[in-house]
Amino acid sequence: MRTSRDLPSPGPGPRRTAVVFDLDGTLVDSEPNYYEAGRRVLLRYGVPGFSWEEHERFIGIGTRETLEVLRREHGIAAPVDELLAAKNREYLALAGAHTEVFPRMRAFVDLLHGSGVPMAVASGSSRAAIDAVLAATGLGGRISAVVSAEEVAGGKPEPDVFLEAARRLGVAPERCVVVEDSAPGVQAARRAGMRCIAVPYVPGAADDPALAGADLLFPGGQGEFDARRAWRWLADSDRTLRRTTR
């Protein structure tokens, strides 16, 4: 596998920008683990046959919000906190055993880290789940701040996780660029006043108007994402921002 060290230099990078990554479906391919954890929990509470197509409805939505909808739709009597704890236990076991980092995203992280660009993760997952994935994949040492939707008032598409990530990084929102895979995430980034790179996880999702509103869109998802192109766009966007804010 090629890493950023094997690639030609992409040229000068951004000077004042911080990058805030969504985690699931953006940095790592954790959706299969979330699907399986949800399927197991629903089966335990009397809901068989939960399909991947049903799971796709909730990609980009926080775990609590997802379970609130499923609890209501399927008439589950257990409180959402009980369901949330059960799903987190299942997910942590699966994530600890295997979580894939998207190779082209790892190359992008390497480029940013090598240039000293501060990075954060802002996710709808629980803090325990985020920490477990970052530790298991080796990404944790390169991330300066982590925010879970558990720690803020509203999950995506509300901007709260991104605004809190900017606060923890000590960077103004307009100086931040979000990397996202879902429409709710792109909406949250725009509401936070941040620029956004969209790399859709779900095939065909690039047609969603919210994703089309991203500043840089890779319609083909991870297979089309280009770390050097994203890097050059960051540098150009940063120079434009500096000129307009002088």
Rank of each mutant, 00 (worst) to 15 (best):
T3I: 06
R5D: 06
D6S: 09
L7P: 07
S9L: 12
R15W: 01
R16G: 00
T17G: 02
A18R: 12
V19G: 03
L23D: 00
D24I: 06
D24M: 09
L27C: 04
E31H: 08
P32M: 05
P32W: 03
P32E: 00
N33S: 13
Y35I: 07
Y35A: 02
Y35K: 06
G38E: 11
R40M: 12
L43P: 03
R44T: 05
S51H: 08
G60N: 00
T63N: 15
T63D: 14
R64G: 01
T66H: 06
T66W: 04
L67R: 13
L67F: 14
E68T: 13
R72S: 09
H74L: 05
I76E: 01
I76F: 03
A77G: 12
A78T: 07
V80A: 04
D81Q: 13
E82K: 08
L84N: 08
N88I: 13
N88R: 15
N88K: 12
R89C: 05
E90P: 06
Y91C: 10
A93T: 09
A95W: 04
G96C: 05
V101K: 11
R106L: 13
F108M: 12
F108G: 04
V109Q: 10
L112G: 08
L112S: 10
H113Y: 11
S115P: 00
V117Q: 05
P118Y: 00
S123A: 11
S126Q: 14
A129P: 01
D131E: 14
L134N: 02
A135K: 14
L139P: 07
R142W: 12
S144N: 12
A145V: 14
S148P: 09
S148N: 09
S148Y: 10
A149L: 10
V161M: 05
A165N: 08
R167P: 10
P173N: 14
R175T: 00
V178P: 01
S182M: 07
S182L: 06
A183D: 02
P184G: 00
G185P: 03
Q187A: 12
Q187S: 06
A189I: 01
R191K: 15
G193V: 09
R195N: 03
C196L: 01
P200W: 01
P200Q: 00
P200D: 00
Y201A: 01
Y201H: 13
G204H: 12
D208V: 07
G213E: 00
A214I: 09
L216R: 11
L217H: 12
P219R: 07
Q222G: 08
G223R: 15
G223Q: 11
D226N: 13
A227H: 06
R228D: 10
A230W: 07
W231E: 04
R232N: 04
R232H: 04
D236P: 06
R243F: 06
